[in-house]
Amino acid sequence: MKTLFSADSLRILVPAFSLAALLAAVFYLQPRTMSYMGLNLMFNLAVPIALATIAQMLIIAVNDLDLSIGAFVSFAACVTATFLESDPLIGLIILAAAVGVYALMGVVIYLRNLPAIVVTLGMSFVWSGLAVLLLPSPGGSAPEWIRAIMTSRPPFVPMAIIASVLIAIVAHLIVMRSSFGVVMRGVGGNSRSVERAGWSVVKVRAMTYALAGTFAVIAGIVLVGLTTAADANIALRYTLLSIAGVILGGGEFVGGRVSPIGAVIGALTLTLAASFLSFLQISPDWQIGVQGAILIIVLAIRLLLNRRERREKRA
């Protein structure tokens, strides 16, 4: 019997509560943010981060870690600002090929039994290099349609919130509700038993990586929709942000335990934390430290929860 305060439901409630508490604090500090425009400005840059976080979460779900997400999103952004704008067909082919490389990466990592961290770290230099080749100096321009979507002003609820909710729902349906999602999490939990049950682990991992690549590509497109132009280093920070977002949102590094809704909340929380610190006018020298402290506090709470989970299981 699940109760509201069982460790399982707390896993998703803690991130939600910390987001709500942070939002309340920001509203108090800067009442201007409590408006349509305010919410949009605070959260619109969280949308690509949320997409990158979902991509990272998929990789983490199969017990790997992707250190190339930031470079890959930058690459996708550069393709968006150049080819997707001028020759949409070539742009789409390049992006599809990039997703194919991601799938291949998942297969190679599994078949050759390579550490994912090393492979993705290596690939991050490849993506960065390709991005620099595409856009040696910052520039390019955003395709009209994505600019229109990202600057649209739907009634009542700002675009940033609608997009975040949409990302959370789609990811939730894929990861938690589809049969593919179950098998994928199974690969992360116990790859051998999934194999014995007759599923092809290679196929599942290839699909997981391809899906992650797709989310990362969308992150790049959306980012360009917000910034109107790209440069080769535009999203390098996303690597660490996406990992932090997954963990903040209740995911575990191993065992296929991930939460798509939590991951989106994690990405929003990280973005909001930066705004919060900025509104407090904390000196920038301290800001990284404070961001780290927030992460440590959340992880400490998680540790307590995990302990309680074990006790519940024993009981």
Binding site: T33, D231, T271, S275
Partner: peptide, 20 residues
Amino acid sequence: TTAENQATEQAAQIQNLILQ
């Protein structure tokens, strides 16, 4: 000053300054 020299971070900073 942004904590890290990154365009995305500075874009967020600018949006925060608008809100302030």
